[in-house]
């Protein structure tokens, strides 16, 4: 499933978040979270440093609670493979405001670059579509990424799933906050919720 003209994960993430407005961004553990941090810290970022396989479900809970706010989950192929069933769960709920973007380097980059199932046999776009997410696409160009950045603001047409084949180079880590209680309560504060 390898392709050429691979995109740069930092450029992709920055382009998705540049004009984010009120969008909430959730990053899967490891490199995706560093990419979101590299695009700029934000009150509406939920950074994960664990809970592998849980990023999409956090996005779903948020999307259902805040249906008028765009929610974008940006995660890795390994993280997505561990939570593949959540694509079926999302499809059933049809959250119009949820977008899922997999940065697919066909590897477990964070743990040493061991190849993942997407390098050989698994087609995550096909999986998402077969789970019932009709708007599931493989994106190859920055023009398509820019278009997705605009579409993800549309809270009525989701859920949408995109897999982006990215350059597998391991980039310098950009460390986000990792105190979950701080990150969660900052996000709740940005949405107008007071501490208990």
């Amino acid at each position: 499933m390898s392709r050429t003209n691979l995109l740069d994960r930092r450029e992709v993430t920055a382009a998705l978040l540049r004009d984010r407005k009120d969008a909430i961004a959730i990053g899967g553990l490891g490199a995706s979270t560093y990419d979101i941090a590299a695009a700029g810290d934000h009150d509406r970022n939920l950074y994960l440093w664990g809970a592998m396989g849980g990023a999409v479900m956090m996005g779903l809970g948020m999307a259902l609670a805040q249906p008028d706010t765009p929610v974008v989950v940006i995660t890795g192929d390994g993280e997505m493979l561990m939570g593949m069933g959540s694509l079926a769960t999302v499809a059933l709920q049809k959250p119009g405001n949820l977008s899922i973007v997999v940065l697919d380097n066909e590897a477990y980059g964070e743990t040493g670059g061991q190849v993942s199932h997407t390098s050989a046999t698994t087609d995550l776009v096909g999986v998402a579509r077969a789970c019932g997410i009709a708007d599931s696409r493989g994106l190859d160009t920055m023009a398509e990424i820019e278009a997705l950045a605009i579409r993800l603001q549309d809270v009525s047409a989701g859920p949408r799933f995109a897999s982006v084949k990215i350059d597998p180079a391991n980039l310098e880590r950009v460390l986000s906050h990792r105190d979950g209680i701080f990150i969660l309560n900052r996000l709740r504060g940005a949405l107008g919720f007071k501490p208990i």
Partner: peptide
């Protein structure tokens, strides 16, 4: 994981 997202979103 869903309940984390729900609570982050106020539910």
């Amino acid at each position: 994981a869903l309940l984390v997202g729900a609570w982050a979103g106020g539910q």
